[in-house]
Amino acid sequence: MKNLNKALLSLLLTFLITFSSQGQDAEMADVMRSEGKIYVVVAIILLVLAGLILYLFLLDKKVTNLERMINEKRKTK
């Protein structure tokens, strides 16, 4: 347990060191975030994703219907 704690602590330390040394100065899209405009992008991407998945759901339903119809037809013969 003690060893585990030590390992975790050293892991955390290496993280801290790497991230503090790897430069907070790396350029990120901070302005876009602070203005809150990022939410517009998120909303658009999610809408596209939702639309595509809805499409997949409907297609699934249609195929299942087709499956049932063909099965019935086969039984009647």
Binding site: F19, Q22, G23, Q24, A26, E27, M28, A29, I38, V41, V42, I45, L46, L49, A50, I53, F57, D60
Partner: peptide, 29 residues
């Protein structure tokens, strides 16, 4: 299972765009 997959994807898209990420040079955002 399908719904679980969809939820996982939604989570990944939201968190992927909004969560904090490591600040690294060259790759940046």
């Amino acid at each position: 299972i399908k719904i679980l997959g969809v939820l996982l994807l939604f989570y990944a898209h939201i968190a992927g765009l909004l969560m904090e990420v490591p600040r690294l040079n060259i790759v940046n955002e």
